[in-house]
Design a protein around this nucleic acid. Structure first.
Length: 312
DNA sequence: CCCAAAACCTGGCAGC
DNA sequence: TGCTGCCAGGTTTTGG
């Protein structure tokens, strides 16, 4: 599923092809791909047609293409979204194609950007850019010199910086864990605290530091919190280096190729298989209408804190 | 503010 | 073969 590494692979692939390109036309094939588009500002097609794309920027799992200093096309891949670069004459037989952008690039000529999404949790939208709250660069992109660089789409403004962002606050993360009473995995998945982590990399990171997903966040020491953050960074960076994680071709990069990180997973999807560290069979447990994967030996839960004078 | 759970959606697959 | 129901899960919304 697309988490930070997968979205970054898409962004990096898209950037050189779309930067500087003009959008000649847009086809909306399925209105459900525009659920996050606010129509009161105008129709999607009208707003993007004729616009020039200045960059491809990412924060966490959100991706956006600034079109001028005031607006951007915001994309989220949801669970099954893909953004595919194609030649203009590519057959239009894609069953799950939702939106097509026809581009004219001064150097690369004509090309097509297809937003393809089976499960329709993903979306594109035209959104307003607003200044970042801290005045820092909004997200990751090759070029940060444009007017758009320190501006963020309103839809993304509430999303925390991701752990690979130079402006991410390690101390802020430690403090956030310290004041949360819920389980640590829930906090890792909270995009308002730290962005870019989904179910796969949460399980991988927790395995790496031998932490139980339901460990109460506030019970974790500052030192252990920093170890966890370091593990998150390591896991994300490694996945990124390997081109992202994908199963059954749900996720593909802009050229349509799958990532290879699936071969490197230590916890996710390994229920019943031996823990790569100690050999104990891994378990899968229900978690927020989905699953957690962990080693029952390496990742034991510390006794939950009890209220004072509890019991009878 | 904090927390938890439901809702959104499609297609693969197991089980009958 | 064909039906049913579960499962995958990121984000927003809703309710407490």
């Amino acid at each position: 599923m697309p988490e930070l590494p997968e979205v970054e692979v898409v962004r990096a692939g898209l950037a050189p092809a779309v930067t500087g390109a003009r959008i000649a036309a847009a086809d909306v094939l399925d209105e459900r791909a525009l659920t996050r588009h606010d129509r009161t500002s105008g129709a999607f097609e009208t707003l993007v047609t004729g616009a020039r794309i200045d960059a491809a920027v990412r924060r966490g799992k959100f991706l956006w293409l600034p079109i001028g200093a005031e607006r951007a096309i915001v994309g989220h891949l949801g669970m099954s979204g893909q953004i595919l670069l194609r030649t203009p004459d590519h057959p239009g037989d894609d069953r799950h194609a939702r939106i097509r952008l026809h581009l004219e690039h001064p150097e690369h000529g004509e090309l097509r950007v297809d937003f393809v999404d089976q499960r329709t949790f993903g979306s594109l939208a035209v959104d307003r850019l607003v200044p970042t709250i801290d005045g820092e660069v909004a997200g990751f992109s090759a070029d940060v010199t444009g007017e758009w660089a320190r501006a963020i789409p309103t839809q993304v403004a509430h999303i925390a910086r991701d752990p690979l962002d130079p402006a991410f606050s390690d101390a802020g993360f430690v403090a956030a864990l310290a004041r949360r009473s819920s389980g640590v995995k829930r906090v890792l998945l909270d995009q308002g605290v730290i962005s870019g982590i989904g179910n796969i990399y949460a399980d991988e990171s927790l395995w790496a530091v031998r932490m139980h997903p339901e460990q109460q966040a506030s019970s974790i020491s500052a030192r252990r919190s920093r170890e966890l953050l370091a593990a998150v960074r390591e896991v994300l960076a490694k996945a990124l280096a390997e081109g992202g994680t994908s199963f059954d071709a749900q996720y593909v990069n802009v050229n349509g190729a799958s990532g290879y990180f699936v071969h490197s997973l230590n916890a996710y999807g390994r229920a019943g298989l031996p823990c790569p560290r100690c050999g104990t069979p891994m378990v899968r447990e229900p978690f927020m209408n989905r699953s957690s994967h962990r080693c029952p030996r390496c990742q034991r839960q510390r006794a939950p804190r009890r209220a004072a004078a509890a019991g009878a």
